[in-house]
Write a protein that binds this DNA or RNA. Structure first.
Lengths: 205, 205, 205, 205
DNA sequence: TAATAAGCGAGACGGTACGTCGAGTCTTCAT
DNA sequence: ATGAAGACTCGACGTACCGTCTCGCTTATTA
């Protein structure tokens, strides 16, 4: 019985893992996700194909982990616990505009764009991967909004009874939509407008 | 210059085109987009591969046209100009709830789900295809919102000065986001809540 | 009943036929037989593919006719009935050397080499075509030898009782063999040696 | 320079090689060379196409090796060094008749005929392949004649000064010619006649 | 301290699909 | 009714990757 073979992760080569992350991200950035192949990643990483197949079930999974790792590294580089909070200056509108502008900037950063688009697209079509994408990348971000809005609600700046989950989507949904499908350009001005319109709908009457 | 030979579309086989549309949609529904191959479509349609390559540049392009054609046919079957308007009963909130609920239903319809997810995902990653997807499928829908909101604005139900393009995204953005990435389930109740929150933000003060 | 359709040869376009011959020979000379395609011949001749398929059963058949035509033309250009005889000066050895040397020259002529190699090769593998090749191209040549040898036999220069069919092959067989398979270089000296050795075997004892 | 990656032949699958030889020979025998495809060989051998393309440059090359291997096997089965000599009974004429008759038999054996015709034809048109065909299949046979004739020459049965290379072609050339182009039927009687006529030409005067 | 077993780089293997080419058939339009 | 043009179905081409499978070769415990 039992699994066909569980590799012993204590003996795993850290060196290879890093090389694979780097190769995957580099290739996605250079040639796009569709033209990135496992064989290509292996070759670029100087690694046997089997080493990839041993530890990941799919190309998308490799990229997801590589991307998470990228975020983790960026985070550590930035002092440790950066971006883990939406500021609370008391001025909800200003705080939301600040963070939405930052999101716009990130979505526009070419370094992040290629892999995150690829992952999002894969997630659209592959529920498994989509779930992990949401859970590990998206949801943590959204929880920050939830937290800030909860504080605002407590402070009476957001109507009581408002479902905060839905509320936060008023900000992030339109932004994501524009980004994913490029229906319209993203800009700080757009972010501001979005906050204004949406926030007004949540304000106490 | 130097086009690589444009085929003569007046001599195109209508029979083959139809068969290809049908095969493409059937296969995407049955085995999913990723496992749908051009070879498979050709075989199922009883058509040479070359006939596909002659008229379409990619699998995604075939599916997009097939899907557009499906919509067209559904439209014609429904009397000609169905669904081409958002009702205007004077009650903006009710009208929007009605149409958003219908959208939820469509997004949930398994017949539409597989191909439209596939197209959306492809569009996320392939700007060319994305542009056509937006232009030919998405934008026409969005324009209906724009029109209804314009009427409402004229009637004083929406604040003057509101950018209607952004306004309509308050409704469609969150919905699309939930659908694409399955962050949360779609339901009529959700649609209603969305309309309520967003609309309040647009209302005159 | 009846053939699937017999084209009316009285209405056949002479213009097209010539153009097809020219194109076929030119292409075989330029890119070789294997890479010569019916489509290519048609395009080069400015002719529809069907015009070829209507009148010839295969690429090899086209080339065979084209080649025969080439010979016919060369013949006419040379005054009408050239090369249709082996000279009879009374000196059998000299006469045979003369004609074998001429054959060596022809086999070496690049204009004739490509198509005749192609036809021979095709004939090796395709009995139908081979039979026509032999009958229409090769045999007439061989008959000239038969005739000359018959005269020699009558004149007592060749042993009585010798089977002339076999005798002539002593000259042409080795030559053809060297040419076809390039086992050894062809030269006038070789032709001379061949005549000497073989003729001696046929001489009266 | 710049080899496009040479595969590591020490890791080559013997199993696959054999299967490919068998499939190639079987297909050529069954459907003929022209209708034998690499795809077909691969399928029949239960082998990926790439495995063929990795080790051979062309269909003809596969067949040539398969055929050589067939000869090698036949040889081993027959005790090791069979057929590697022309007998030397002292009677040159009898010895040559014996071996020429055997050659006629082989050329008529349907098992050998299809592939060797195919190879010969390919060699006629493709100098590369032709050279290998001659070098590896034909020339070793011809050397046997050269050796026997040299012995005869030493024994005074063949005129001194005779070029043995040309001499041997008096026997093999006509035979090959008849076989390749089917100008006339092959038979033991023909072989005998050939030996008689040619040998007489080589005899001391 | 040796042996022994895992992960590893490498890459051959059986496959599937790719996108292209040409075969041979069929249809349209012009002469 | 022939011919030029070219779209059609079909089948094979040669290539690229897939995911699996040996091969030695480190390396890192375990006997």
């Amino acid at each position: 019985m039992a699994e066909t073979k569980a590799p012993d992760s204590t003996r795993r080569s850290e060196r290879s893992r890093r090389a694979i992350y780097d190769a995957a991200l580099a290739l996605v950035a250079e040639v796009g996700y569709a033209k990135t192949t496992i064989e290509g990643i292996a070759a670029r990483a100087g690694v046997g194909k089997q080493t990839i197949y041993r530890w990941w079930p799919s190309k998308a999974a490799v990229l997801l982990e590589a991307f998470l790792d990228l975020g983790r590294q960026a985070n550590e580089a930035l002092g440790g616990d950066a971006d883990s909070e939406i500021p609370d200056t008391g001025d909800l509108e200003a705080d939301l505009k600040f963070v939405l502008r930052a999101t716009v900037d990130e979505m526009t950063d070419p370094k992040f764009e290629a892999p995150s688009r690829a992952l999002a697209a894969e997630g659209v079509v592959n529920p498994e991967l989509g779930a992990r994408f949401v859970e590990q990348l998206l949801e943590p971000q959204l929880q920050l909004y939830a937290k800030r809005l909860a504080a605002a609600q407590e402070a009476g700046q957001v109507r009581a009874g408002i479902d905060l989950r839905i509320a936060l989507e008023l900000f992030t949904g339109p932004l994501a939509h524009r980004w994913l499908l490029r229906t319209q350009p993203l800009s700080h001005a757009y972010a501001d407008r979005l906050v204004e319109y949406a926030l007004y709908g949540l304000a106490p009457r």
